[in-house]
Design a protein around this nucleic acid. Structure first.
Lengths: 217, 217
DNA sequence: CGATATACGCTACGACTCGTAGCGAAAGCT
DNA sequence: AGCTTTCGCTACGAGTCGTAGCGTATATCG
């Protein structure tokens, strides 16, 4: 539960008049997720969301510019659930976060919305930025946390060059998130414990061996 | 250049009457890709595609059930371009196919369409199957080819259990394709030679070390 | 060659969604 | 109180959807 919302209901202190209903915000976002499950992305209409939320359609348009922005906010909330409890070893931590992420992607609203919003963002820089700050960065912290713990345990060496460290973190992030998403949504095969274990072995093996120098010639 | 089309223009021999125009098929698919670049997914209308292709809107609906199916076919053609020339080493082969795949994903029509179709497929089993056969399986062959070559070179050991071999191939496929897609479309950062080299080092390191046994405990 | 069967282009249609405008009423702040 | 902003409601033109109906074009079969 983060206190800072995105930017809608930010009740600026020097603001007079009737404030926006925070309950309406929550109801709309919940209704959006519900409608996503029932209808999917393309058949989701803002009018339907308004009806489900018990608000007027105009209220919706007063707060969000369109379907894209609304769905990003509705789904971003779900990513707050991701956590990284200390499971004792780097392998266990990776395995845990993979399964956790897979569970999140197993939910119908996440499956549909994440891909759809990414698709729309390919031609919309503002939307892409919104996704980065609302979703991507929120997951990347898990990689940083996990690495730090592993370094404290002595499982990973301390990084010398901070720039290389950042690049490696980005690489790992794309590999982990990408593999889980691809397995789950594109190949449409289950991310179970067995797969998570194989994947973790592959990743940690790569980290252990490829310290940084290229492998060929 | 595969001779067998999907299923539309399959001129069955025992068929009487005027056959469907193969030119119209090609024109429609090209127009679809063009419209995707200009409009993106959500603003793409089938009426517009028909106009661009120089055919009647009804002709479009006679061949495809809707936007989803049309776009899958339009994009599937692009994946035929992927090839795996022998570059001499496993590392070079992996690096090459990563860059090639990244180039494909850099094209606006691929970026938009692939994610959008995957998003729609989350609630549509038929569409999911169509994606699997038209797109996913077409890429998976690259993994199998690459592994066989590496085994012939002696870079990888021959597999004993065919089932384990298949699982490993699927894992590698999801890791490679997923990482490239995620880096390119979600993180929206470039897949350049440097990234491809780092990724390849990570992957091959993992393959070399994690033979199959789990790493923890 | 004529008959049959299918595809094609065109037009028109009802149903739906979109995003906006205008109104009176409600709910806060000073 | 008085002011300001939000809210719910209704209505609207514009655009898209997917389908039906018609006459015409182009194949195969007898």
């Amino acid at each position: 539960m983060v206190s800072a919302m995105h930017d809608h209901t930010t009740d600026r202190p020097g603001r007079t008049g009737r404030p926006r209903s925070a309950e309406a915000d929550a109801a709309i976002l919940a209704a959006t997720r519900e409608a996503l499950v029932d209808l999917g992305w393309s058949k989701l209409t803002l009018g339907d969301v308004a009806t489900r939320a018990g608000v007027a359609k105009t209220t919706l348009y007063r707060r969000w510019a369109g379907k894209n922005e609304l769905v990003v906010d509705a789904v971003a909330e779900l990513f707050d659930e991701l956590e990284l409890p200390d499971r004792g070893s780097l392998a266990a931590d990776v395995e845990g976060v993979v399964l956790q992420f897979a569970d999140l992607l197993a939910r119908p609203e996440t499956r549909t919305a994440l891909m759809a919003v990414v698709a729309e963002s390919t031609g919309d820089e503002a939307l892409r930025a919104r996704i980065r700050t609302s979703i991507v960065d929120r997951q990347k912290r898990l990689v940083l946390e996990g690495r730090q713990r592993a370094q404290e345990r002595g499982e990973l060496p301390a990084e010398d060059d901070p720039e290389t460290a950042a690049r490696t973190a980005d690489l790992i992030f794309d590999v982990v998130a990408g593999a889980v998403v691809h397995r789950s949504l594109v190949s449409s095969e289950p991310v179970d414990t067995e797969w998570a274990r194989s994947f973790t072995a592959l990743l940690l093996g790569g980290l252990a061996q490829a310290g940084g120098r290229p492998s060929h010639t």
